[in-house]
Amino acid sequence: MTVDLNLVGAKGAIAEAAEGKWGMSIDQDICTGCQACVAACAMENNISFVGEEDAGYGRSQHWIRIERFWEGAYPEVKATPFQPMLCQQCGHAPCEPVCPVFATPHSEAEQLNLQVYNRCVGTRYCANNCPYQVRSFNWRDYHTIPERGNMVNGTLVFPLHNQFNPDVTVRRRGVMEKCTFCIQRIHKAQDKAKSEGREVEDGEFTTACAQACPANAITFGRVDHPESLVSQLTHQKRGEKHLEELNTLPRVTYLKEG
């Protein structure tokens, strides 16, 4: 079903279309801010580290980051619950329409926001238009910075490259990147299920962040299947979506305290 989401008065239809396909719930009440998801994401998705200086300029490439804010002043000060922030895979994404070269299409098949690296020319419009600030730009060819390699018999070798996940493209300078909901794992699970002549089962696979999370705060799955764990968590009373008022239709639900 296609719904013109810009139509005034399309609210009911929006609510229906809002479900999407893949979704995530993040329980902020038990997220301990330990950064395991951040590390897991980097390891799975060949994300480059940028080094101290570029990190200082805000160029670090975390696809998922953990936010914490302060409330009050000492001694009544409180850190707000840790808030893992990643691409919300909006159903109505602000990043999509602004790309002049259509490198940020919406996947109709998987209901995800895509970033097509080979099409991206690096205008960074999408990052500027993302209200969640979850897109990061490759300011350099970080993976091949000479200081990261060793000179062996006259050639520069990069031992760290051995770790690359062959299922994920290694991004070059000048392209935008962001969380993909581990689309390579989605494809792999779908392929496996298809080869065995069945549907993908709930919990059969999960994203790298959810798999690592020691508190099990992150749950991933089909939000359009009411019986899936993520659907049930998402529809709890304490569930909340960020910046919903912008009508972005985010697919990530945050579970609050209480």
């Binding site: 950064q35 590390a39 840790f82």
Partner: peptide, 10 residues
């Protein structure tokens, strides 16, 4: 390096 680039949680 990736542990270095993980922000301290606080």
């Amino acid at each position: 390096p990736w542990l270095q680039e993980l922000p301290d949680p606080m």
